[in-house]
């Protein structure tokens, strides 16, 4: 758990972060969202003491970080930045092994861990381990960046616009990847972005920041349904909030389940249970059908979802 109490940061006379209070529960993904210069990166960098705070208190698991050795503190916090920050003179494997090496793990344990992480992030160890960062695509490099942050199994993950420099398709892939990994590893994550869609997709709770203050701190659904101010309302988009809400809910919630899963007839297309309602509606509009079958992860047909129900109850 990370607690920020009355935290302030000034640069000269300018106030970057203005007396904020924020609690991030263990295992949740807290996304700090806001336009550039709103203080979200500054807040993140105060948590691992890359920036000193001017005033206030930051506690990690109840302990004031000001009393800890900064290097020790950071060794237990994975850190991912926009430009990846991979060392160009080190191979992929050595980059991932950075923190375990700083912690002086034995050689075999490091090798095993690197192998495990590369597999987790869908990087083939045999082809990528000995490459250099310049030989990777942007998406691969950021996967390595995430693997490096997870290497020593830290309790906390700090991510500063990690997918900001990637193209839309790669970004989407990495977001899905992150959701998948987060389900497995359950890290307490602070994630900074200016992209509200990314925030809605990844967050357990979102903290909307503006001019150094936290305007609203709530779940994605509540941010969409009950924006605290006009600023938040504009940020989430006044008009397409309905679709965004549908984007948060899964097909599983509104489908009519069959009594028992059945084998589909060959060639039928459909949706998966974990697809969003937004996708389901889009598919039905495109195919001009009133309903679509739903499959589970084993490929069995578990129910159907109707256009009518999505329109009635989706948002």
């Amino acid at each position: 758990m990370i607690e920020l109490k009355h935290v302030t940061r000034r640069f000269g006379n300018a106030v970057a972060v203005d007396n904020i209070d924020l609690t991030i529960e263990t295992g949740e993904v807290c996304v700090l969202v806001g336009s550039s210069g709103c203080g979200k990166s500054t807040t993140l960098r105060m948590i691992n003491r890359l920036l000193p705070r001017t005033d206030g208190e930051i506690l990690v698991d109840g302990e004031d970080i000001g009393t800890m050795n900064p290097e020790q503190l950071r060794l237990n916090m994975g850190y991912v930045i926009q430009g990846t920050g991979l060392f160009p003179h080190w191979t992929v494997a050595r980059n991932i092994a950075m923190v375990p090496q700083l912690l002086k793990w034995p050689r075999e344990r490091i090798d095993a861990r690197v192998h495990e992480l590369m597999t987790l992030l869908d990087l083939d160890p045999s082809t990528h381990a000995n490459k250099y960062p310049q030989q990777l695509s942007g998406g691969q490099a950021q996967r390595v960046g995430v693997a490096r942050a997870l290497a020593a199994d830290p309790n906390i993950l700090l991510m500063d616009e990690p997918f900001g420099a990637l193209d839309a398709i790669t970004r989407e892939n990495l977001q899905l990847e992150m959701l998948r990994i987060q389900k497995q590893v359950r890290k307490t994550t602070v994630f900074v972005t200016h992209d509200i869609d990314e925030a809605l997709k990844l967050a357990t709770r979102i903290a909307v920041m503006d001019q150094g203050r936290i305007i609203q701190h709530d779940t994605p659904e509540n941010i969409l349904r009950r924006p605290a101010t006009e600023f938040v309302e504009n940020l989430v988009g006044k008009q397409d909030r309905g679709l965004k809400l549908m984007g948060l809910r899964t097909v599983r919630e509104l489908m009519q389940a069959h009594p028992a899963p059945k084998r589909p007839e060959p060639g039928t297309e459909g949706l998966r249970e974990e697809d969003s309602l937004r996708l389901a509606l889009s598919v039905m509009l495109w195919q001009d059908t009133p309903q679509v079958p739903v499959f589970n992860s084993r490929g069995e047909e578990t129910g159907v979802i109707t256009r009518e129900r999505i329109v009635r109850e989706g948002a």
Partner: peptide
């Protein structure tokens, strides 16, 4: 500076 920042953030002195 970005590389130094990454290194520092990962816990290098």
């Amino acid at each position: 500076e970005e590389l130094a920042d990454a290194g520092r953030g990962m816990g290098m002195n």
